[in-house]
Design a protein around this nucleic acid. Structure first.
Lengths: 341, 341
DNA sequence: AAGTGCCACGCAAACGTTTGCAGTAGCTTA
DNA sequence: TAAGCTACTGCAAACGTTTGCGTGGCACTT
């Protein structure tokens, strides 16, 4: 009753039958007599038998577990994504093994090893921003452990990924501001090193040219995403010979820094100076002075899609065993959302 | 090279020795000759051998995995806690199996079963707010799976837990406002059903009586924590015959709702009406109109402590096997933190 | 030369399952 | 009445490790 859980062996012993019969009975194998089956099931529930998954894992070579490695669990974007991953995996009866890399490439490598040893069936990864080599992920192919990347994806060929394209959203954002009558639109962009920075810039330029306006490079300034950096960037924009009446910021954090600073400069937010941002923070809806609109990146959806893809891979790889010829490349288009006040 | 990972058996075969020798060699067992040991290790690295954890799990009956069940991964408080849990577990070489209950008691029960079947060594739980029976957790005792509760703890005896006591923090919060000259202090409290609501109320009363002020029950109003509810609560307070000049709110969400509403009523925040809240949101520091101070609940610390306790339990239970006579009851005192602007 | 001790290693069981293959009834069929 | 079925059930191997115990050989004592 107490101590060790019941095993199939014990059930067999009590009933005076063999373990294989018990196993088959519990799985409704057709070759087991109806009466035996009933007896076994009855006793199983009585003893509250639960199969030992670790034994099944060993036997089957599958763990029904997926590993998730992402940079920072406490960031709003990722916590939303992990929530989606867990939800989706749960529905398919998979379990989630979780780890965070803290953007540390060395730790990331260790985590991959750990996941491999735990024999996860597949892996969901958002790579650290400092990660330069992806060999540790590539190695997994040898072991038939599929990897699906999401949001922060490595720039290598032949991978499955889900990502959000910032360009469309940015075009929408700029167009939105143009439609509202703004003609001088600034952008506080991210560091040059990030892919997302390029996408935003491209979107900005496309939106301008599409509306037959000429693109003024001095209206896009880089920023290291800190509060200080944001203030510096805003100063730069406000002192530009063409002073913007609206600004697109790299993300919500930057937007809030900028808004806070602008208020200190006695600028009337959304009157004198309008903001549009990229949604990282759900909290934005609780606040008073917020960007007029945000480019939504759908973290929940990204997590969900990525998990779905992984599930699909897991259920279809068994047959082939070798590298797939086709790769999932899902791009979720970012989308402008007007923030309700 | 490709396909299945190397096993101990293969190494043994190649070297013409037995599996037990290989196993012992890899574990630096003293009874293995230095030369054999070297040979084994060399070949192991050459073949990039990695022990199959599932086999070890089965053999040892331990998985070096801890389960974590909490209500909502995407909430700031919990994402911060899970981050701490993962960090702490990682340091002790444990892995985290994650699941969220969405405050659904039925799902919570299923998750407990799942965790048990996965043979997690221990469990970390923050119970759902609708959970009324704790039998599913109690059952784990039979299987020697220790459970440590944190933050949202069940009101039953003989459990290990880490929680944050709101009373002290509330006393500090009210005292802080009193010291600033406020004499009429309102409180927007949570639903009567929650333990935390009681703690806040107690703290409020104690702070008042300590300062020889009489406690006016009409200054504490309940609230269902929604935006509407908050507005209703604030209206009630503002229309009270003694109109408060400061308000303590149940949490940051409520505070932000209230502040937003107060601004709409053209009330000068932190001049006419000052706010103190309980910290759930890191984002608070990015904002302009925020509560003057917050009662910090230390989610990261709670997660860390809870994990430490679980680790301790895991490393000391093996000897006894039966229920411990002493229980960890760690109370982290909440603490007032002035919010920097 | 026989006894003692130690070192280095192998044997085999065990962990709890699943599953291919055999086997044994009892029954039908010719 | 023997052959052949069908309907059940059992045997044993396998998954990859760990570990108690046994055993061979060698060197050392006396």
């Amino acid at each position: 009753m107490q101590g060790k859980p019941t095993t199939i062996k014990e059930i067999a012993q009590i009933l005076g039958i063999s373990v294989s019969t018990v196993s088959r009975a519990l799985h409704d194998h057709p070759s087991i007599g109806i009466t035996t089956r009933a007896k076994v099931k009855k006793l199983a529930t009585e003893l509250s038998y639960e199969p030992n998954q670790t034994a099944i894992f060993l036997q089957k070579g599958k763990t029904h577990t997926i590993g998730v490695i992402l940079p920072e669990l406490s960031e709003a974007f990722f916590s939303s994504a992990i929530s989606a991953i867990e939800d989706t995996a749960y529905k398919k009866n998979y379990t989630v093994l979780l780890a965070q890399s803290h953007d540390d490439e060395v730790k990331e490598k260790q985590l991959v090893e750990k996941m491999k040893n735990h024999r996860v069936d597949g892996l969901l990864v958002s790579v650290g921003k400092n990660t330069s080599s992806y060999q540790h992920f590539e190695n997994l192919k040898k072991y038939n452990i599929p990897v699906v990347y999401f949001d922060r994806i490595p720039s290598i060929p032949n991978i499955h990924y889900v990502a959000c394209n910032m360009e469309i959203g940015t075009i929408e954002a700029v167009s939105y501001l143009l439609k509202k009558g703004h003609r001088t639109i600034g952008m506080i962009n991210g560091p040059q090193t990030m892919v997302a920075t390029g996408e935003r810039k491209e979107g900005y330029i496309k939106a301008m040219t599409k509306n037959r306006l000429k693109y003024d490079p001095s209206l896009i300034v880089s920023c290291d995403l800190t509060e200080q950096g944001t203030q510096k960037a805003l100063d730069e924009l406000l002192n530009n010979k063409r002073k913007p009446t609206a600004i697109v910021t790299f993300n919500d954090y930057v937007a809030l820094f900028a808004i806070k600073y602008a208020q200190k400069l006695h600028i009337n937010i959304n009157k004198e100076l309008e903001f549009v941002s990229y949604a990282n923070l759900p909290i934005i809806n609780y606040m008073e002075n917020i960007p007029a609109a945000s480019v939504e990146q759908f973290p929940y959806l990204q997590g969900q899609k990525a998990t779905d893809i992984l599930m699909d891979l897991l259920h279809h790889q068994g047959a082939t065993g070798n590298e797939p010829s086709a790769f999932y490349k899902v791009i979720i288009e970012s989308q402008l959302v007007e923030n309700k006040k």
